[in-house]
């Protein structure tokens, strides 16, 4: 077997790659549906009906995609620089912690300033927690994958301590949750019905800004150059360490915004379950988007639809909801192959 690079990568092929990967994942996972004794096509139909079939389902899918857009962007930009930040989950909770610390009465500003203020402190918190792994990488050569992963566990335990201890809301009937975000800090709802909140606008704006940065600015150019060939970038005079640190700050900040938007937008207060693994799913979003900031939007919407739809599907036909997680995992593997096939061809000998 020989793997040869293709002379030119067609745009059509590149665009179709993730779609084909998703279809392949759906086909592969149909084995599990058959095992569960359910009809495959009808089950998938129920899945997408549950995600898109009604006004309520559709708003729910969009609402659930907001944190995925942020964490997807966080992974996309970091992976572009080959900085493998797997800690978006922890950074998300750091953003949520900052929003809770400042947003529950410590600072009171008019709503027009309060919401951006919470976003900024949340992004700072998400970025700052990444300082430890990124400096360990640039200065001590400690692999960032393991440190960011381990920090996730540490941060989750810290959140657990805070909301069971000093930050516990005495009005919450004993539930471990923090006090509610003050009214000025709550993200307004976009529609009178449903839970869709203004976090969506921030997520879309973030995707656009990241795209502009990657496409048109020196910073974006440096991030891409470091990711493609760090040695060549260094010869060209790009300072690798500062580029990686900068990338990490932006990545962590984006993940932090996911936490702010969940606390100040969806829930209104911090609990230990604001994220059912959005940080990890964000990696799948980024891979499906082929690390392109704008493509993160449809990728996040799609994976959100899978999760929302899987709930509906498992209620209708007896298939465990974990099918959604399997589908996401298989999609990551499939997209790796399909994207590779756009750039290389395999010759069997």
């Amino acid at each position: 077997m020989q793997i040869e690079p293709r002379a030119n990568v067609s745009v059509l092929r590149a665009g179709l790659a993730p779609i084909i990967a998703v279809l392949a994942a759906l086909v592969l996972c149909s084995v599990l549906i058959v095992w569960a004794g359910a009809p495959v096509l009808e089950s998938y139909f129920l899945l997408f009906k549950g995600a898109l079939g009604s006004r309520f389902a559709l708003t729910e899918t969009i609402t659930r995609s907001i944190p995925l857009m942020f964490t997807g962007l966080a992974a996309a930009i970091a992976f572009r620089a080959k900085f493998y930040n797997i800690g978006a989950e922890g950074q998300l909770y750091c953003g949520a912690l900052a929003a809770t610390y400042f947003g529950t009465g410590l600072v009171v500003l008019p709503a027009l300033l309060m919401v951006p203020f919470l976003m900024i402190v949340g992004a700072l918190a998400g970025g700052l927690i990444l300082i430890i792994p990124v400096l360990l990488k640039t200065h001590m050569k400690v692999d960032e994958v393991v440190t960011t992963l381990l920090l996730n566990f540490i941060i989750l335990l810290l959140v657990s301590f805070l909301i069971e201890g000093p930050w516990k809301d005495p009005m919450a009937m004993g539930w471990p949750q923090a006090a509610s975000i003050i009214d000025e800090g709550v993200l307004p709802l976009l529609m009178s019905k449903g839970r869709l909140h203004a976090g969506l606008l921030f997520a879309l704006a973030a995707a656009f800004l990241v795209w502009v940065m990657m496409r048109f600015t020196v910073w974006g150019y440096e991030i891409k150059a470091v990711g493609l060939n760090a040695k060549a970038a260094e010869f060209a005079g790009i300072r690798i360490n500062s580029t990686i640190i900068r990338t990490a700050m932006i990545s962590g900040g984006l993940a932090g915004l996911a936490g702010v938007s969940e606390v100040a937008g969806l829930k209104g207060y911090l609990t230990l379950d604001i994220s059912p693994g959005f940080g990890y799913t964000g990696i799948a979003v980024a891979m499906l988007a082929q690390l392109h900031p704008l493509a993160v939007i449809p990728a996040a919407l799609f994976l959100s639809a899978v999760y929302v739809g899987a709930d509906a599907m498992s209620r209708a036909v007896a298939i465990p909801t974990y099918i959604a997680d399997v589908l996401v995992g298989v999609s990551v593997l499939c997209v790796l192959i399909s994207v590779m096939l756009t750039k290389f061809k395999i010759r069997w000998r």
Binding site: I3, L32, W35, A36, F79, Y84, I86, V145, Y280, I283, A284, M287, A318, P320, Y322, I323, D325, V326, V328, G329, V330, V332, L333, L336, I337, M340
Partner: peptide
């Protein structure tokens, strides 16, 4: 295939652990 060891590994972890839970739930609903 020479694909990214980082991303593949994360994909395998996501796939294997979710498949474990799925199978467990299927066998013991």
């Amino acid at each position: 295939l020479g694909l990214s060891q980082h991303v593949t590994g994360i994909g395998v972890t996501m796939f294997a652990s979710s498949l474990s839970y799925f199978i467990y739930r299927m066998m013991l609903p």
